[in-house]
Structures are given as structure tokens and as C-alpha cells.
Design a protein around this nucleic acid. Sequence first.
DNA 1: CGGCGGCAAATGTGATCACAATTTTGGGTC
DNA 2: GACCCAAAATTGTGATCACATTTGCCGCCG
Lengths: 240, 240
Amino acid sequence: MKRLAGVSASAKTSQASEEPRDSERIVGLTTHEEVYRRLRQQILYGGIKPGSAVTLRGLADELGVSSMPVREAVRRLIAERALLLQDNRRVMVPPMTRDTFEQILFARRALEPELAARALPKLTKKDIAAIEATDMAIDRAMRAGDTEGYMRANHQFHFSIYRKSEAWTLVALVESIWLQFGPFMRTAYGRIGTSTIEDHHEFALAAMNKGDVQGLRSAIDADIGQGMGFIGEAILTRAG
Amino acid sequence: MKRLAGVSASAKTSQASEEPRDSERIVGLTTHEEVYRRLRQQILYGGIKPGSAVTLRGLADELGVSSMPVREAVRRLIAERALLLQDNRRVMVPPMTRDTFEQILFARRALEPELAARALPKLTKKDIAAIEATDMAIDRAMRAGDTEGYMRANHQFHFSIYRKSEAWTLVALVESIWLQFGPFMRTAYGRIGTSTIEDHHEFALAAMNKGDVQGLRSAIDADIGQGMGFIGEAILTRAG
DNA sequence: CGGCGGCAAATGTGATCACAATTTTGGGTC
DNA sequence: GACCCAAAATTGTGATCACATTTGCCGCCG
């Protein structure tokens, strides 16, 4: 088995050879790891709508693997709170509530500025240049109205900074938090559009170039508050 | 199969009243859920030493279940960072490093005082009385040198407060953090003994009785700083 | 006596089957 | 036409088997 090669997000897959192609034996990725990463991306960038259900056999058929790796990947995502195991033992993308949203906002402001501050002394000129390039990609996606591209680039912008802190324990906490509001973010942007977004990345980049720790903290905090407030108002006015 | 506790619930009807310990609503327990909770307790209260390896078949034989539920439980604990999947694909209790320890300390101080503050307005007289009783259990365990009893009671003291906040997203984050330093804490206390512990629970209780939010925040923060600093110095001086 | 190679045991991973519980569906009654 | 109940399909859970990789042990050769 182990097809899974180039299956696109929600599109129906084209029939491929059932032979296990060992072309990518270079990376020692297990099947459930691949399934995990694929599902994770779909959730993180809004490929699956909040409230929609996922089934083990459904995912297994879609990805061309047995249900075994899917079970492990789904179990892992449930533990990370990216998926929700209901009392019926059915699995769904968790719907967002006002309470959850507010707590996520608090946790982000408590952790992410700190991560940025820890990363700052370790950022090289090349790192900052790469981050600036990512920021330009964000602008391009925003102007093009490419919601998924925006979300990917925005995620990369933040975590290419945070990862430089090498504070893996805190980074893992923040990654788990992002997984929880990903689908929700997509819904918000999909409804409002990306053209009206105005982030604080310029201030963050300026602070990075100056080595201004406190300025970077403030910029990240402001970016979180602005972006989350933006999408928070956009959706939580109807249900939460 | 499904031995596990001498109770062979045939999964047909909901067997009630099995575990009076952690009072959670346990009705439709699956096998992997039972395995998960058992492993979780062992890790949280130091039943397994940091660095020691666990094997799927070993746990399965020990608990009298097949490897299937163990795989799911272990996968879940890996996702929660309570266990570590090494490159060899072997699973172990993560060893503590100075960096990880410092990040856990930061995250605890960032989140737990807030949880306590959110819980305070929802605490009834009866809740506070129960928390005081738990604190007395802590003292008893401390004087008796009962390390595991102390850890259980201390865990209960903190989380019986935090859970009252009903901020489940934040509580989940903090639970994940506790899972990560549990084994380590046990090692420290086992080496030093519990008789020298001096927590700030009295101050916390006083603040709760007065409804003093800021005082409660400070007490929890001090309790974290003191306790973590204590065990931090105790061990990280040798390796980390 | 110590390093080295190879063979057996142990282990993680994936697939498949069986079963219980839930959901869905279809037909029949009022 | 609405409601209800039974049968069928769907789904999650657990067990077992097969296989590749890793670990550990033991003897061999230097």
C-alpha cells in the first residue's frame, strides 16, 4: 500500500500505481507521520471546515493507505487538540467558541512575544532577510486574495522567528495553540477576505534589525491582538 | 482480553464506580483510554524514571491487553510530550535538561497564576474547604515522607483550583506541562525527601478566603518559583 | 584479552479481520 | 404525510499476523 504520493487536498485522487514506490526512501518517514503532516497542514491552513466530521476509513481511502496509520495520526491530532473526539466516538474539527477563542488569545500573548524575544539575539542577517522575504510573500498573497497562501506565509513568518529561539518546549506549546485556531482563521478570512488585513510585521522587522527586544515584544503582541481581534469580531458576533 | 484491573467489563453496559481517585466522569471507557490514564498517572507521579524506556509489547503484557490500545495510548502521550519518540523509534520518558526545565518554569508562571485568578470568583466556600483539606493531606504526606502521596495531593491542590476556572483550553496546556516535569519532580523529591518542602499554599488559601485576586496570583507564582527552584537546584547541578 | 561480525530475539509499523455501537435508511402503520 | 421501528450500512475499537529494522548476545579472529 502506501500510495499517498501526490494526493491533493480535498480533490478526488487520480488512480495511481499501487506499487509502493521506494523513490523517497531517503527520508525515514513512517506512513502515519506522512498522514499526520498532511492532516496537520489541512487543519492548520483551513482545508477542513470547523464542525465537519472526519472518518478513519474515509481518510484512509482518500489517502490510499490502510486505516492503521490514519488511526495513529488522528489520535495524535486529538491529543494536540487539533481534532475533537466526541462522546459518540466520532471525530470532528472542533468548533470555535468565544471562551476558547479568548483563552487562545491569552495564551498567544503570554508565550509568543517571549519566544520572539528569545529568538532575537540568535537571528542573523540572513535570517532576517529570509523573514522579510516571507513578509513580502504575505503581502503578495494578501493582495491576490489567496487565503491559504496568506495563512501558510503568515505561519511561516511567525515560526521562522520562534524556532530560532530553540526553546522547543515553548514552541511546541505554541504550535499546539495555532492548530486550534487554524480552521477558524480560515473561515474568518474566507468570509471577509484578506485585502483588509493590516499586520504589525513591519514594526517587528524594524525591531529585529535594530536588535530592539522590547520593540519586538510589543510588535508581536500587537500583531496578535490586532489579527485575533479582527477575526474574533468577524465571527464570534454570530455564535459563541 | 482486557484484564487490566481484574475488572473485565465486557464493554456492553457502562460499568460505574471503578475509580474513586481522579473524579472524572468515566462511563464509556475504552481500553486505550484506561491504558492512557494508567500510564499518565504513572508518569505524572513519577512511577517511571526519566530516561527509562517503555516498549509496546512490554506494556501490553504487563497490563494484560493487546498492543493495539497501548499503541494508541503511547501515541497520545508522545503527542502530549509526556513520552519521547526517539530516532530509533524507541519510546522513553524524556530526560530533563536545564533548557527544558527553564521553559517549563516560564510557561507555568505565565499560565497558572492566570488560571487561579480566573478560578477565584467561581470558588465557593465548599470548594475552598475542599482545597484546604487537600492542603492538609499535602502536609501529612510531607511529614510522612510519602513522596507519591505528596505529588498526588499537590497535583490535586493546584488543579482543583485551576479546573474551577472552566478555562479548559488553558487547563489542557498546563496539564501537558505538568506531564513533562512529573517524572523529574519525583526524582528530585526522592533524592532530597519531602520534609524540607515549604510551599506557599497558606498564602494562596488566605487570598482565596479574602477574595484577593492579586494576592492569589502572587501566591501561586511564588509557589511555582519556590518549588521549581528547589528541585531545579537539586538536580540540574549535576547534569543538564 | 579485546574488538568485530553475524545470528537470534525484540521491537515498531502496517495490514487485515472481527465485533459492537452508532447512524442511516427504508418500509409500514396510523 | 408524519412517525416509528427494524434492517442495513457505516464507523470506531481491539486482536492478530507479517515484515523491516534495530538491539543484544555470542562466538570468532586478531
